[in-house]
Design a protein around this nucleic acid. Structure first.
Lengths: 241, 241
DNA sequence: GAATATTTGTACGTATGTATC
DNA sequence: AGATACATACGTACAAATATT
């Protein structure tokens, strides 16, 4: 299988060599790779073996192959800092780090509560909900997509209000919620869903940080359950404790 | 390239069909895939095309191919809940959710502070540090690996103390630190590093939640900076606010 | 703008290695 | 030991997107 007989696949060695190439120096570091055929010749392997190595490095976010153009070294910009606390509000938070922040409605619907959401919102399973899908953008760069569920009877016009204002806070205010807070936040991470990748304009194998939380009004009544997917490449969450 | 002429690669269609196969039902759902040659015959494509599809689904965590055995459907267990707060301590936290929790020393060393860590520990760049690598296991399942840095002059024997006790808290106590707390936690997510994957016993393309934080003693002096990598498949972090 | 060359993406074929059954 | 099943590797061809002439 590999003629080096040390049990390491060739494509892994090629990947390591490429890693060394691109990680060599900061200033003189190349920003693009030689073409696949030349790499294959240089390493004495088949083009497919080079491609296997490139695919692995691309999955790590180190390379970005573009059909017809070449394979480029990924220089990832610093991540935008997203502070999470009891009073987290997207627009206000992000505008501390970015020049422009906006939320946009990308979908909505009505559905009945499954067990998990019913529990979070302290409703009976099957209760009527409004679902709201939003895309959050800072400085023109999509950062996250979020799905929120609201009790339909209390927030009948939440979708329209959000579509107008681009702000959950304002949409809630239009329903008489002057203040709200979150209590706890569950954090997981996974590969981005297909639909989310399209909205976020990211690679189909990108990683998202998933944040689930509920918001409560001043009386402690749950008013919103949300599940946000943050692009891990572009955002870091900061929790103060 | 594909004879369907709708611009969708064949391997993607095969992936979708396999996804449908395994996601069919809860009870009667298969727990393993037919062998690659049979899938290739069934879908009328080459075995490599099937493999490309399987690789994509494996990257999503849906399949787990095992050499010589077959390709299995991944049924992921519920994640262990890991509460994060000012007084987060691994052993105490996890033992609320698991029967057994333990930390094990997997590496250590001495190094000098780079800019980032020096800043976090309020030291001059180049200051002497002790680095401690640990593997955290609950119920025999590796959950996370962590790297911690301590000022070398204040915690000269921290590695030995941790090796003996398996607890950072106790190792710090041996150096006279009765209490400590964290102030903020930075959360990112990325693909697991190669070395970490070996310790965690996970797939090489698994996702980890990366948590960076500093701990401070009762006088507010930073005593530890740590970078923990939690397997996203096995753990969820919960922050109270 | 059109034709051509370059470069990555997909697909199939074939062979062999390695782990498991 | 033999059969089975996934892993790696090379070869070939063409498609699709981009760059160049």
């Amino acid at each position: 299988m590999d003629d080096t007989a040390d049990g390491i696949a060739r494509w892994r060695k090629v990947a390591d060599e490429i890693r060394a190439m691109i990680g060599a120096a900061g200033a003189g570091a190349p920003d693009r790779l030689p073409v696949e055929t030349e790499l294959a010749a240089r390493f004495g392997v088949n083009r497919h073996t080079v491609r296997r190595a490139i695919a692995a490095l691309a999955a790590e976010g180190l390379l970005r192959p573009e059909r017809g153009r070449g394979t480029f070294v990924e220089r990832r910009p610093d991540r935008i800092v997203y502070p999470v606390g009891a009073r987290t509000r997207f627009t206000e938070n992000i505008s501390q780090n970015a020049r422009q922040a906006a939320g946009r409605l990308i979908g909505s619907g009505r559905e009945s509560a499954d067990r998990h959401i019913a529990n979070q919102l302290q409703l009976a399973p099957g209760a009527a909900l409004v679902r709201l899908e939003s895309l959050n953008v800072a400085d023109g760069v999509p950062l996250s997509v979020g799905t929120s569920w609201f009790p339909a009877d209390r927030f009948p016009r939440i979708v329209a209000a959000y579509a107008e204002t681009g702000s959950i806070t304002k949409a809630l205010a239009a329903h008489g919620v002057a203040d709200y807070a979150r209590r706890s936040t569950r954090i997981t991470a996974e590969r981005v869903a297909h639909d989310d990748a399209e909205h976020l304009g990211c690679a189909s194998d990108a990683i998202v940080i998933v944040s689930e939380s509920a918001n409560y009004d001043a009386d402690g009544v749950p008013i919103q359950f949300s599940r946000s997917r943050f692009l891990a490449d572009r955002v870091e969450l900061v929790f103060d404790s």
